[in-house]
């Protein structure tokens, strides 16, 4: 009796700690959402999470954007870039992964090793020459520098993810397809691709999020405000030295998190499996 009581007590304590830590974890996000609905004067004076006075002014003011360009523009720009990146990664990484996982070709071990090395390579070591190349091509202030690399399968992480996934698909399927007269290209399109869908979804989700949040590259390559993304728009609303319109800033910040959160909630299963099996961030 005593032992079961102690066990129950320790279980309750553990539960309470887990819940308390969970609340702490989620607090900054809740603070952001709740503050975005408070009038500007109350954001910093009222510590409570539940706004005494709810207003949509922040959203209306923020949506106007800056220099006559509204956040509608920033959101559609971000969406265009992200979707093009997703398509690029899904198409070109799956092509490369099929070759690595299923085909025999000369120097395949060497290329595979190179592919593994590029996963760990910091982006910055190629940054300056890439900038120079894109500058020579007059691609500064276009989306090519952000999108083209994805169409050239430079996110080799996803290649590895798909290679591992394809290796789990029984080879007998390929072989019977060959006997039925499928060429290699048909085997890729009709056998492997349909079975690869879970890995493709994981790739698509993370490509979208990384592209949406890729503040660094966007800042380097885009300076024309009409081309700005959501991240750049928010950073421009925010003036670290002087006074910002905090209400508008927090409202747009909240909106900027909506697409990612929505994707997460819809595809949760793929997320957690993707992270657990491959260590994606």
């Amino acid at each position: 009796m005593d032992i079961t009581l102690r066990k129950a007590a320790s279980r309750t304590l553990r539960h309470v700690l887990i819940i308390a830590l969970g609340l702490l974890m989620i607090y900054p996000v809740v603070w952001l959402v709740s503050s975005s609905f408070k009038p500007n004067t109350l954001i910093f004076s009222e510590p409570g999470l539940w706004p005494k006075e709810v207003t949509l002014d922040n959203y209306i003011n923020g949506w106007r954007g800056l220099q006559g360009v509204s956040f509608a523009r920033f959101f559609s720009n971000s969406a265009i870039i992200a979707i093009l990146c997703v398509l690029g990664n899904v198409v070109t990484c799956s092509l490369a992964a099929f070759a690595f996982a299923r085909l025999r070709f000369k120097f395949s071990k060497f290329w595979f090793a190179m592919m593994l090395v590029t996963i760990m390579l910091p982006y910055h070591v190629t940054l300056v020459p890439q900038y120079i190349i894109f500058n020579e091509l007059h691609w500064i202030n276009t989306y090519y520098p952000l999108v083209l690399p994805k169409w050239l399968a430079t996110d080799s992480f996803f290649i590895l993810l798909m290679v591992q996934f394809i290796r789990g698909i029984p080879r007998e399927l390929d072989e019977s397809a060959t006997i039925d007269g499928c060429g290699l290209k048909q085997t890729y399109a009709r056998i492997i691709l349909p079975l690869l869908v879970p890995a493709l979804i994981t790739t698509a989700i993370f490509s979208f999020i990384w592209s949406w949040d890729d503040f660094f590259s966007q800042m380097i390559y885009l300076s024309d405000i009409r081309l700005f993304t959501v991240q750049l728009g928010i950073r421009s609303l925010f003036d670290p030295t002087g006074q910002s319109d905090w209400g508008a800033l927090l409202a747009m910040s909240t909106l900027s998190l909506v697409p990612i959160t929505a994707i997460f909630l819809i595809f949760q299963r793929y997320f957690l499996e993707g992270i657990a099996t491959t260590g994606l961030k």
């Binding site: 830590l21 969970g22 974890m25 989620i26 900054p28 996000v29 603070w31 952001l32 999020i209 949406w212 949040d213 503040f215 991240q231 928010i234 950073r235 925010f238 800033l249 927090l250 747009m252 910040s253 909240t254 900027s256 998190l257 990612i260 959160t261 997460f264 997320f271 957690l272 961030k281």
Partner: peptide, 17 residues
């Protein structure tokens, strides 16, 4: 709940928060 910060943490929005 514990994963949400990893999901959102890379954004400019959370840095501002």
């Amino acid at each position: 709940v514990y994963y949400v910060p990893s999901l959102l943490g890379g954004s400019v929005a959370i840095a501002i928060v």
